[in-house]
């Protein structure tokens, strides 16, 4: 019984912590469906909060990496992110170009300075 529970636990967590807190906003949008546009104040604020959250997650993934990414030294990871960002700005604001340059820089730096 407890083996079954252990198997199912991650899926239970997925529904409670992932699906429901996320889906509630789609449901609310369905119910509200009128009187709310992209420029309303609550939407502007919520977009700022969501952007800051995402930025924090991105920074933590780069600075406090775990697993395989942690074997590539911190200065290499940060430089690669900066180079990718600069490439994005330089090459017609292309997300694709930025990711490719950042990835190439990381791979090269990892080969030269990795453990």
């Amino acid at each position: 019984m407890s083996a079954v529970l252990n198997e199912l636990w991650p899926y239970f967590i997925l529904v409670m912590v992932g699906f429901l807190p996320n889906e509630v906003w789609r449901a609310l949008g369905f119910v509200a469906a009128r009187g709310l546009n992209e420029d309303s104040e609550i939407v502007v604020w919520s977009r700022a909060v969501a952007t800051a959250i995402l930025a924090a997650v991105i920074a933590k993934l780069i600075l406090f990496s775990s697993g395989a990414l942690a074997t590539i030294p911190l200065p290499v990871r940060v430089s690669a992110a900066v180079l990718g960002f600069l490439a994005f700005l330089a090459i017609r604001r292309s997300v694709f170009a930025g990711v490719i340059v950042g990835e190439a820089a990381l791979l090269l730096g990892g080969m030269l300075f990795g453990k």
Partner: peptide, 11 residues
């Protein structure tokens, strides 16, 4: 908090 943006999209 990251999902609030979905609401105006649905709307």
């Amino acid at each position: 908090l990251s999902a609030i943006r979905l609401m105006p999209m649905v709307v």
